[in-house]
């Protein structure tokens, strides 16, 4: 795998092992609970429902009894490039009021709700459909008491803005504050991990600094089974997947017949 995380000092990223992923959806629930994502009475309208972490179900398309199902948990990919070699995410490059930015020091693609004008260009530009538009204010009817579980670390969104996975940016702040209070400039591996990675009961999600060779993520992405979604768009996502199943890896991109290369030799 080519080196491509040289930009900033830290490049936070994620590796999701699809062999381990059970499709349980705890990551989705953890993300919604952590980030004050609103739940509406009808979440079956997938055009309107908001899920920063979204689970996709794929099947190998074979007939009974050779059918297999697998899952793709999809957070924001925190792309490093726009597909044309520029060091800017596809969404960032189209946002008129600069409401979304690629942070050079962390690699995190942020979203500033108060700046967002709701034009939804970023949504159109994101090849991974990771961005969601708020058609309504969050669903917190008076007297229902739902607002009581909201976390003050993440501001609830209002109608008319776009939201998405932030790599739980507030958790980075939390870890930094703690480190500074203890007189440290740097945070250790594991001090900053996302809510989804922390919650996964099968330990399928690993989070860390792709630029730090000691971090588990930077070792995992060297696996011959590591890949990214739509790799050939050259958006340089910082979310990687692992799967030993050819049919799963094949489905991660638009391969032409004969173009997909299965892993034949397993090494470092």
């Amino acid at each position: 795998m080519e080196k491509e995380h040289g930009h900033g000092k830290h490049q936070y990223g994620m590796v999701i092992d699809l062999d381990k992923c059970t499709g349980c959806g705890t990551c989705m629930t953890a993300c919604a609970a952590e980030n004050n994502v609103s739940v509406r009475p009808d979440e079956s309208d997938k055009q309107r429902s908001i899920a920063w972490m979204q689970l996709f179900k794929i099947t190998n398309g074979k007939e009974f009894p050779h059918t297999e199902v697998s899952y793709f948990p999809r957070p924001c990919m925190h792309c490093n490039e726009n597909g044309r070699g520029h060091h800017v995410s596809p969404c960032v490059s189209v946002c008129p009021p600069t409401a979304t930015q690629l942070d050079l020091d962390t690699g995190i693609v942020s979203q500033i709700y108060t700046r967002c004008i709701g034009c939804r260009y970023c949504q159109a530009a994101c090849p991974y459909k990771a961005r969601y538009f708020n058609w309504w204010d969050g669903y917190f009817p008076k007297g229902k008491g739902l607002e009581r579980y909201l976390s003050p670390e993440v501001s609830p969104r209002m109608r008319g803005v776009v939201e998405k996975c932030t790599f739980c940016h507030h958790r980075l702040m939390r870890a930094k504050t703690k480190a500074y209070a203890e007189g440290r400039r740097e945070i250790e591996e594991g001090e900053y991990i996302t809510a989804c990675a922390e919650a996964c009961p099968a330990q399928a999600i690993t989070f860390g600094d792709l630029n730090n060779p000691k971090h588990k993520v930077s070792q995992l992405i060297k696996s011959p089974y590591a890949f990214r979604l739509l790799e050939r768009l050259n958006t340089k996502p910082k979310v990687y997947y692992l799967s030993t199943k050819d049919w799963v890896r094949k489905m991660a991109d638009n391969y032409l017949p004969g173009e997909f290369k299965p892993v034949t030799k397993i090494g470092g």
Binding site: N82, C126, P127, Y128, L229, L230, L233, T235, M251, N254
Partner: peptide
């Protein structure tokens, strides 16, 4: 997403890039 359309779903609006 089925095998056929998983990727098509993702890149549906890829022109934006």
């Amino acid at each position: 997403i089925t095998r056929r359309n998983f990727i098509q779903f993702l890149v549906g609006c890829v022109a934006g890039i």
